[in-house]
Design a protein around this nucleic acid. Structure first.
Lengths: 207, 207
DNA sequence: CCTACCGATCGGTAGG
DNA sequence: CCTACCGATCGGTAGG
């Protein structure tokens, strides 16, 4: 009896590797550890993936593909304006928070192999980011979005902020006397993003 | 003749280690590499620091001490309000941008050893962060700062954002058709921070 | 600050 | 999917 659900061996290896690489880093994880977590011998793992580096690449493209698959659903939420913004942001956070090590692995790879990650982002995410950017420019023309927003920098900022709050939140969580929970941290991020994007308007519909 | 300026050997080891740990990570760097960069033999390095882990600890406390030393100067900039905000932010960015690998090392350690980093932050930075938080609350009472700001979460957000833009900016830099430079990214961060903190006011002094 | 040496672990291969 | 084996490198010690 194995240590996790049966499934395909390749899939179980990928899951274990994703978890361990996220927790300890690629250099901090031996393929021996991954094999043990799956319940197989090391040469068997190498037989399936060829090399440790190839395993890393397959883990990463799998993760980016999931992301790419979820993004359209997230962006299709509703029409426009502040409420849509909130729902889009919260769906995006939910995606990362559901499996927190995803954000961790992304952050690690951005540090270790920035060029490779840039290429992966360009392939998997660029169209969607560009779509958001175009919407912001539309909003600026139509007058309900601040004109001083730098759309490219704004979108990149939100992505950085979301990834790092979830990936590195543990390190800053209890620094303060009244430490903000991840919940508070994320809802402040939503507030911050809205305040910086939309023009002030009266609280309720009247006027 | 060594590979870098003479100085104390210990100091040269610390500098090389800081640079290499930041670039390749702690697990991705051998003490052999550090020794070679300094121009000494590995056992000599071990003689000076006892162990690789002790070297890491001394690199990190050194870095946090520098940070702690600079922060009061940064915060003493001017009195209050949006202009002070801008100058404080820009001084903080300048500190990291001057030696970009500092932010990288901080980000790596937040991922690898969150508990240890939390303790270091608490010791070296907590008083200053708390000071900023108290100022935000003052501003809220006095009415020139938004009441919906969550001061703790806001401050933590800015720290996360600054560290990750500088540390991981390379990975997101050229994703878009019109990639924002680090400059644009940082000035958007200043704009975002101000828009989310202060109430809207007329552009020029007249009313 | 060095040379010489240590056991342990690394990723990967041979061969079945 | 396994056992048996490989050379290379790891952090650290002995002893001077």
């Amino acid at each position: 009896m194995g240590l996790s659900a049966p499934g395909q061996v390749r899939t179980r290896i990928l899951e274990a590797a994703e978890r361990l690489f996220a927790a300890q880093g690629y250099n901090g994880t031996s393929i021996q550890e991954v094999a043990e977590a799956v319940g197989i011998r090391r040469p068997t793992l190498v037989y399936h993936f060829g090399s440790k580096d190839q395993l890393r690449i397959e883990v990463l493209t799998g993760l980016l593909s999931q992301w790419q698959e979820q993004l359209p659903k997230v962006l299709a939420a509703s029409q426009s304006g502040p409420d849509r913004f909130r729902s889009v942001m919260e769906s995006a956070f939910a995606f990362f928070r559901a499996v927190p090590h995803r954000a961790r692995l992304i952050a690690r790879e951005m540090l270790d192999r920035p060029d490779e990650m840039r290429a992966l982002f360009a392939r998997h995410l660029e169209p969607y980011m560009q779509l958001v950017i175009d919407r912001i420019r539309d909003g600026q023309r139509e007058g309900h979005t601040r004109r001083d927003v730098d759309p490219e920098a704004y979108v990149v900022h939100l992505m950085h902020a979301a990834v790092s709050v979830i990936a590195m939140g543990d390190a800053t969580k209890h620094v303060l006397r009244d430490p903000p929970s991840v919940e508070r941290q994320l809802s402040e991020l939503v507030r911050l993003g809205k305040a910086a994007l939309f023009l002030d308007r009266p609280k309720s519909g009247g006027s």
